[in-house]
């Protein structure tokens, strides 16, 4: 009798676990489908927004040699930089061809940092190349900054009541730059998402901060894509670029860019 009960309990446990696995697998399949549909729709968005459908003069597809595409991109990159030079703010130039990231002010390079590693969304490669060149020809504007470090490290100091209190206070604010983890996202109005992170966090705290930041970003994007698809809307264009660089350079770039900074990308 006892053995029978044990066997029945074992069976129930196995049954429940199997159900649990089936639910998890269903969720995975659902989200894979959502992401896949979103990517396919986004590919369509690139063509419809920047492709030849919107051009008054259509160019024969066969005229696109790889050299022409490369030159179109070079032209787009230079046009973008010149447009940015005409503005008053500090702008960002992401040059993936030379693996360099630059800060420019009125066309003058004020800071240059090497890109140590990068990866880009395959949407850049598999979409209409004319459309991609068109997308990159105009500089994007940063619409939101999100990161693990403060944009302006402001320290509030209450004025001392008298000289004794003033003398007892330290003169120099603590330097937090060495412990701050550098992970941030720049969302541009043209749909490009620039993910910049330090090459490797030395501390576990830094690594954890990066992991939490990117997981939060990823789940937020996944949730947005799911709700957009469920409500039968077209997903917003989002093309991701992941850049790894030295923490010091990453921090300089994040702190220097003004709220509506312009960004141009060279592929």
């Amino acid at each position: 009798m006892k053995n029978k009960n044990i066997k029945a309990a074992d069976k129930r446990m196995g049954f429940r676990f199997r159900h649990f696995i089936i639910i998890l697998l269903s969720v995975l399949i659902f989200f894979t489908a959502v992401e896949l549909i979103t990517l396919i729709l986004q590919k369509g968005v690139i063509s419809s927004q920047y492709g030849q459908a919107n051009q008054s003069e259509k160019i024969d597809h066969s005229l696109y040699s790889q050299e022409v595409v490369k030159m179109l991109r070079e032209k787009a990159y230079l046009t973008g930089r010149i447009d940015m030079a005409k503005t008053n703010g500090i702008s960002l130039v992401v040059d993936l061809e030379d693996s360099v990231i630059r800060l420019e002010l009125k066309g003058v390079v004020i800071h240059k940092a090497p890109i140590l590693n990068y990866s880009k969304s395959r949407l850049f490669e598999c979409s209409d190349q004319f459309a991609i060149s068109k997308l990159l020809s105009l500089p994007g504007t940063v619409i939101s900054y999100e990161g693990t470090l403060p944009k302006e490290a402001i320290i509030v100091k209450i004025a001392p009541k008298d000289t004794t209190e003033a003398n007892n206070r330290p003169d120099i604010a603590p330097d937090t730059s060495k412990i701050e983890a550098v992970y941030y996202n720049l969302k541009l109005d043209n749909g490009i998402n620039l993910h910049i992170s330090q090459i490797e966090a030395k501390s576990y705290k830094g690594k954890l901060a990066g992991f939490i930041f990117y997981s939060r970003e990823y789940f937020s994007a996944l949730w947005n894509n799911t709700t957009t698809l469920i409500s039968l809307k077209r997903p917003k264009l989002q093309i991701n670029l992941w850049i790894k660089m030295d923490a010091k350079d990453g921090r300089i770039i994040y702190r220097s860019l003004p709220p509506n900074a312009h960004v141009t990308v060279r592929l």
């Binding site: 995975l28 989200f31 894979t32 590919k43 066969s62 490669e125 598999c126 990823y218």
Partner: peptide, 28 residues
């Protein structure tokens, strides 16, 4: 199971979906 699920969700799905779309290079 939960750890494997989260790993596939965070790491696997983006890679998988990106690679399903086959790149089309410019015509030469």
């Amino acid at each position: 199971a939960i750890v494997v699920f989260l790993f596939i969700l965070i790491q696997g799905i983006p890679v998988l979906t990106e690679f399903i779309i086959i790149p089309r290079n410019a015509i030469v």
